[in-house]
Design a binder for these strands. Structure first.
Lengths: 117, 117
DNA sequence: CAGCATCCGCGGGGATACTG
DNA sequence: CAGTATCCCCGCGGATGCTG
C-alpha cells in the first residue's frame, strides 16, 4: 500500500525532489538536457548568466544524484558530453507539468485580471 | 499553437514555476495546504525547524504569487487561516508527481543497487 | 575546451526580543 | 496567537586567474 492522498509524512518525498531539481540552475539544465545531449560549452551558451563554476557544480550534483551522466572523451581538445540517465528521463512528465503550470502562472501575471480579487 | 516538445525558449516557464514553489519551505508548505486549511501555529508545528520569520516570509510570497490565501479573523486571540487559492490547487497534480518521483529517488538512494554502475 | 582554485561581497536566514 | 524588528553569521555564488 502506498499513500492515497496528501496524507502520510509531510512532504518528505516532495522535499527530496525539490532538493534535486530545485538548485539555482538545475531546472533549466535538466530542461535542456531533456531535449538533447549537450557539451559543457553548449550548456553554458544556453544559460547566459551562469558562471562556469556554478555550471560545473550543478552538473556534478545532478550527476551524483543519478540524474545526469557525464561522458568524457579523451581527446586533444577536451570534450565532455552531458545527458540524462534513464532515471533522469523519468523527470520528463514532471517537467512538462512544471512548464505548463509556469506558463499559466506567467499568463496570470501578465493579465492581472481586474475582475477577480 | 503551443509548444510540442522540449523546444522553444529555454525553460523560462519551468524557471517561473520553480521560483514559485522552490523556496526553502514552500514545497512542504504547499504540500500541507493541499490537504487542509491551516492556521499559522499549526503550520509551524508541522514544520519543525522553520522559524516564524521564515514561515511568515514564505507564506507572504506564496500569497503574493496568488498560490495561497490569507484569511484574518478579527478576534481576541488572533487567528489567521491559510489555504490554497483555486489557482494554487492547480499545483495538485504537479505535487503528486513530485512526491512520486521523490519517492523513487529516495528508494534508489537507499538501495544503491550494486549491479548497474 | 572544460574545468579547478582562490578570494571575497552580500544577502539568506537563524536567534532573540518585543507587540497588538 | 500571529506576527514584526533587530542583530549577526556564514555560505552561496560572482569574478578572476591558472591548467591539462
Amino acid at each position: 500500500m502506498r499513500h492515497s492522498r496528501y496524507d502520510a509524512n509531510p512532504g518528505c518525498s516532495v522535499e527530496a525532489a525539490l532538493e534535486v531539481i530545485g538548485g539555482k540552475w538545475k531546472g533549466v539544465l535538466i530542461y535542456h538536457l531533456l531535449g538533447d545531449t549537450l557539451r559543457f560549452g553548449e550548456l553554458s551558451r544556453r544559460l547566459p548568466g551562469v558562471t562556469q563554476r556554478m555550471l560545473t557544480q550543478q552538473l556534478r550534483e545532478l550527476e551524483s544524484d543519478g540524474v545526469i551522466e557525464r561522458k568524457v572523451y579523451a581527446q586533444a581538445p577536451p570534450r565532455v558530453d552531458y545527458s540524462l540517465t534513464e532515471f533522469g528521463r523519468t523527470l520528463g512528465p514532471l517537467f512538462l507539468l512544471m512548464r505548463d503550470w509556469g506558463d499559466a502562472y506567467l499568463a496570470r501575471r501578465d493579465i492581472p485580471r481586474a475582475e477577480d480579487t
